[in-house]
Each structure stands twice: as structure tokens, then as C-alpha cells.
């Protein structure tokens, strides 16, 4: 053996070196994607305010959307409030059902849960949103029309479709959260005289609570960003949501409806980018909230 040979790096060291470069490159792509996306949406989204001279305050607090009229107006309040309303109502419907299903799967009957219910949930997760929208359009909208009058299109249809769509998302995450509660806690609670109901409420739900909240927030984030299915059933007229039957539009449905019908550089187009900017900021906010709960979980 001579020294010259020892100075050249071994095969393993070279592999290690290349492996690292590969990892950095892949991570770099991800970072680049995020930065360009942010830059793109920001630079386009603020044009409404910097170039077209619309006041931010006006944009957020009025609800008239006539960007092509002789006295153009762009107010996103109706869109923003409809987005929040449908999303939150959808979560209010879906979250309790999802958590009850998760309890059934993890605690009550693990056999049926893992062999039947979990595959169903995974199947539902994979169904494209246009299918949900189609089901809503052909079944839900006529049903609402027959039962409550009106056109059938509107917030009620939108929130029900969203609730259906995020049910599997929240269920799947909730199952994981409940499974994450160590079995030994259950056993200890049982040996302290607990009933199954008490073990569920005093131990499993209590310990899993931060993760369950994260599950619901991810569901909300998904509902907030969902466009296609909502657009198919919500009615697509811009007005403030007065009741559950109001046909209206959300941020996302407005975007999908109009983005192909506007010319780049005009106010009509810029205003849509501003809507996209709001969506981006909101999903950022949902992520930050979820992170806060994740941190609380680590502490406890």
C-alpha cells in the first residue's frame, strides 16, 4: 500500500459526496419553486393596487365586481366571505363525522375499521374533484331545488360538496392522530377503572387533540383551495351571501371561471391575480396555524 493511493478518496466517500449534491439539488428545486411562485403571484397580484390604482381597503370591503364597465369596480368581499363561509360550514359538518369514524376505526372495531373502512376512505381520497362536482351538479343541486326552491345552486350545495370532499381527508388524518396515542395510556386508564367511553374522552381524544385540530385545519385548507367542484354547484354570480340558498361565487370559483376570459395587463386580469394572492396568503396562514399546534404537541 502506498500513500498516493490513500490520498485519493475512496469509492464510498465519492458516493457520499454525490449523494449530498443530489439531495441539495432536489431541495433547491423545491425552494426555487416556492420562491418563483411567491414572486409571480405577488408581482402580478399587487398590480391591481400599484398600477390600476385600486385601494386595498376598497378591494377588501366592497363587493361589486365590474372590472370591464366604464366605471370599473373590483370588490372581493363577497368572494372572500363566501369562501370562508362555505369552508367553515363544510368543516363544521365534516369534522365531527370524521372524528367519530376515526374513533370507530381505531378504538371500537379495529378489524372492520382497517379492513373495510380505511380502504373506503383511501378510495374516496383518490376521487378527482370534478367527479364530486359532477355528483353535486346532477344530484345535489336538483335535490336542493326541489326541497328548498330557488335554483339549487349556491352556498348550501357548495358547502355540502366541500364537506363530502374533505371528509376523507380529515378522517384519514384523524385516524393517524388517534393511532398515535400510545396503547399503554389506554391500558393504564382501563386498569384505573375506566370504561371504553371514558378512555376515549379522557385519554385518546385529550392526548390527540392538537393533532386532530391539525387534521381539521388541513381539511379547511383543502376546502378553501378547492375550485372545480365548487364552481360547478355554487352558481357563479357575485353577490353577498345572505342565506344558504344564495347563488354566489368563491375566490377559487371566480378564478377558474374568469381566468381564460381576460386579457393580461388589464384590470380584469390583474384583479384575478389579486384573488390568487389572497388564496396564497390564506394557505400560508393555515400552514402557520397548523405549525403552531404541532409545536404545542411537541411541548406537552
Amino acid at each position: 500500500m502506498n500513500l498516493v493511493e490513500l490520498k485519493s478518496p475512496s469509492k464510498e466517500i465519492r458516493q457520499d459526496h454525490w449523494g449530498k449534491i443530489l439531495c441539495y439539488a432536489a431541495t433547491g428545486v423545491l425552494l426555487l419553486l416556492l420562491l418563483t411562485m411567491m414572486y409571480f403571484v405577488f408581482s402580478k397580484g399587487i398590480r391591481t393596487f400599484t398600477v390600476d390604482g385600486v385601494k386595498v381597503w376598497k378591494f377588501l370591503t366592497t363587493s361589486q365586481w365590474e372590472p370591464t364597465s366604464t366605471t370599473p369596480k373590483v370588490g372581493a368581499l363577497a368572494l372572500i366571505s363566501t369562501s370562508f363561509l362555505t369552508t367553515i360550514l363544510a368543516a363544521v359538518i365534516a369534522a365531527p363525522i370524521a372524528i367519530i369514524i376515526a374513533i370507530y376505526v381505531v378504538v371500537i372495531d379495529t378489524k372492520i375499521g382497517t379492513k373495510l373502512i380505511q380502504p373506503i376512505v383511501e378510495l374516496l381520497l383518490g376521487i378527482p374533484s370534478v367527479v364530486y362536482g359532477f355528483v353535486g351538479l346532477t344530484m345535489l343541486v336538483p335535490l336542493i331545488r326541489r326541497s328548498f326552491g330557488g335554483t339549487g345552486f349556491g352556498i348550501l350545495a357548495g358547502m355540502l360538496i366541500l364537506a363530502l370532499m374533505i371528509l376523507p381527508t380529515i378522517t384519514s388524518l384523524a385516524i393517524e392522530s388517534l393511532r398515535g396515542v400510545d396503547r399503554s395510556y389506554w391500558n393504564f386508564a382501563y386498569t384505573l377503572g375506566g370504561t371504553t367511553w371514558q378512555v376515549i374522552t379522557h385519554v385518546i381524544l385529550k392526548i390527540a387533540a392538537p393533532n386532530l385540530i391539525i387534521a381539521v385545519i388541513y381539511g379547511i385548507a383543502r376546502a378553501f383551495g378547492e375550485a372545480l367542484a365548487v364552481q360547478m354547484v355554487i352558481g357563479n354570480t357575485i353577490q353577498m351571501p345572505i342565506n344558504l340558498l344564495t347563488p354566489t361565487a368563491t375566490l377559487t370559483s371566480k378564478l377558474t371561471t374568469d381566468i381564460g376570459n381576460t386579457v393580461a395587463g388589464t384590470l380584469a386580469n390583474d384583479a384575478l391575480w389579486s384573488l390568487a394572492l389572497i388564496l396564497l396568503l390564506m394557505s400560508l396562514a393555515f400552514n402557520l396555524i397548523a405549525k403552531r399546534f404541532a409545536k404545542r404537541r411537541v411541548k406537552s
Binding site: 395510556y185 386498569t191 392526548i207 406537552s300
Partner: peptide, 11 residues
């Protein structure tokens, strides 16, 4: 009452 091998106080 029962005490286990691994201490399992609740969080």
C-alpha cells in the same frame, strides 16, 4: 390496581 413495567404516566 395495577402498575406496569414501563412507567406510563399520562402526558
Amino acid at each position: 390496581g395495577m402498575v406496569y413495567q414501563q412507567p406510563v404516566p399520562f402526558p
